[in-house]
């Protein structure tokens, strides 16, 4: 493997929420690199901390929530240490964000055009006319009639709204686009076509994508690498194809079994028994042990480290040194 200088370096990132009952660790020592142009998927059940991880990287956490450790570097620059002013300079130019529901992420009282143009105006001074032309060409890029520059978000269909938001994310052709389940608001067919569109845009423009989803099958054909998260930790990280061919962590296998595979043979879908752990009181030992079919007594006490197995990282006792 040729070593390429990474675009994004996340190291030991730890995020906590302040609650009445005490701090809740939503992201626990997560490390992750992204090379330019790479598509990395992050999968896990809701509440596993995947969205929190994204927003921590993007510096968009709510006030009740804070990074308590680790670092995030983009182009080698420390994102977490930047003040808001400096951050504003690189926001959207170097990295942009696509959110889960455009209905909620677009300002309901401003037209799509106004929301594209204010973003342009925030970073570049150009005549209103050229900003409009630029916005129009962006809409065309995602297959929306530029007439809709004058539309308000609620006047667009669900699919158009999501595409408009993706167009917005590409205004400055950033190197990194952070996507939080951008297709989950749509039906299955629209999801699929939007995924294809995103992939095609990525091919044209060459941005790297950090893509969060709870649906493993959705990213199976699109992501280069996949990170599986459970209870705030990465439990498996590796090449997507390798991971699908030979899932090492029992949670990864369980996740795979719980979603229909597009290409594979028909199988009975299995939900994962049990429920995600309460992050206020995470289980001791391996966090997955209460739901794990392969649990052994020792797993309930000792926390497994992240171990390298081939090209994959796994957090499971069965791959520990003494196994």
């Amino acid at each position: 493997m040729i070593s390429v200088k990474p675009l994004l370096e996340v190291e030991d990132l730890t995020v906590e929420y302040a609650t009445d009952a005490g701090p809740v660790r939503a992201v626990d020592h997560v490390s992750l690199d992204l090379t330019p142009g790479e598509f990395v998927g992050i999968v896990g059940e809701s509440g596993c901390g995947k969205s929190t991880l994204l927003f921590a990287i993007a510096r968009l956490l709510s006030p009740s929530c804070d990074v308590v450790g680790g670092s995030v570097r983009l182009h080698g620059r420390d994102l977490l240490g930047m003040d808001e002013e400096a951050l504003r300079e690189i926001r959207w130019r170097d990295y942009s964000v696509v959110m889960q529901s455009a209905m909620n992420a677009l300002n309901p009282v401003l037209t799509v055009g106004a929301q594209l143009e204010d973003t342009i105006a925030a970073h570049e001074s150009m005549p209103a006319r050229s900003a409009q032309e630029r916005s129009a060409s962006l809409l065309r890029l995602v297959g929306i009639d530029p007439l809709h520059l004058k539309s308000y978000p609620h006047q667009l269909s669900g699919g158009m709204r999501q595409r408009a938001m993706i167009a917005m994310a590409l205004i400055f052709t950033p190197d990194l686009v952070i996507m939080d389940e951008p297709t989950s608001a749509l039906d299955v067919v629209a999801q699929r076509s939007l995924m294809l569109e995103i992939k095609e845009l990525q091919r044209q423009i060459g941005f790297a994508a950090l893509f969060v989803t709870h649906d493993m099958s959705l990213v199976s054909h699109f992501s280069d690498r996949l990170a599986v998260m459970y209870a705030g930790q990465i439990v498996e990280l590796g090449d997507t194809r390798e991971l699908f061919r030979d899932p090492k962590h029992p949670y990864t296998s369980a996740l795979m079994a719980s979603f229909p595979s597009i290409t594979g043979p028909k199988e009975v879908l299995q939900g994962i028994p049990g429920s995600p752990p309460d992050l206020l009181h995470p289980p001791a030992g391996c966090r997955f042990h209460p739901r794990c079919p392969l649990v052994e007594p020792r797993f309930r006490i000792e926390e497994p480290p992240l171990t390298t197995v081939g090209n994959t990282l796994v957090r499971c006792h069965r791959y520990g040194r003494d196994h």
Partner: peptide
Amino acid sequence: LAEDYIKMARAKGLSPTRIMFQY
């Protein structure tokens, strides 16, 4: 302020005054 479009506006790097009033 807890709405997604505020988070989005921050992500876009809009000026605080614009976020505060227009968003």
